[in-house]
Design a protein around this nucleic acid. Sequence first.
DNA 1: ATAATATGGTGAT
DNA 2: TCACCCTATTATC
Length: 264
Amino acid sequence: MPEGHTIHRLARDHSALLRHSTVTMASPQGRFVEGAARLSGRTLDGIEPYGKHLFYAFGDLFLHVHLGLYGKWTAGLGPPPDVRGQVRLRMTTDSAWVDLRGATACEVYDRKDKAAVLARLGPDPLRPRADAEKAWDRLHRSRSAIGQLLMDQSVVAGIGNVYRAEVLFRSGLSPFTPGNAVPRATWEGMWVDTRVLMRAGVKANRIVTTVPEDRDRPTGRATRADSHYVYRRAGLPCRRCGTEVRTQVLAARNLFWCPTCQPA
DNA sequence: ATAATATGGTGAT
DNA sequence: TCACCCTATTATC
């Protein structure tokens, strides 16, 4: 589930579990033995989420984690469970533990390394002082499709395939609209909507983009089946207009959209 | 038991 | 544009 909301939620949860504690690190799987040894025994000062990246600050060094497509954290209070499967990194304190599996990136960074990553990221809608203007600068000069641009982490950091599809649907915008054809007001609306959705995603720890009246059962909370408008709903009727939801690969991922609600 | 699939990104071509 | 990374879960036989 790693889009930006997951990353920010993890930062919050891990912060509650590990911050200001002495952290012991190990790599049962064996692929992060050296890095774990470098950081083990240090005190965690804080965790900074940015887009889909996590930076755990240990003095002048950082643990940089990018979950990629498969990465997952598990965590808990008390002593850690027996290691099962491929645990790339286990961090333990006196009172808590976290395990990392399958991450694309798990490495030790210094300030320079961290700055280099941040330098190539666009504004993150989940960060309070995110500068939407920077994203607009890129977007309104580009002939690339908005569905492509939203997946580009140097344009906006933290949006993934689900939010791409859902935000475009909610804005009534065709994914194939060139960036330079998107009206400024539309972009501003989309940005605000993205922030709202992603903040709700952090809180709920999952992505819900439908409003109650568009759900199968308009009362109560969204179920797994009705939490999205178009994502993974190819061939099913659009929740708003009944048109079959379409799919096509764009930016190397399956895109979903309603051709009626999001006309070209 | 085996295969297909996934919310991501990089680097080669 | 494509292969590849890497793991867990879900679907299919």
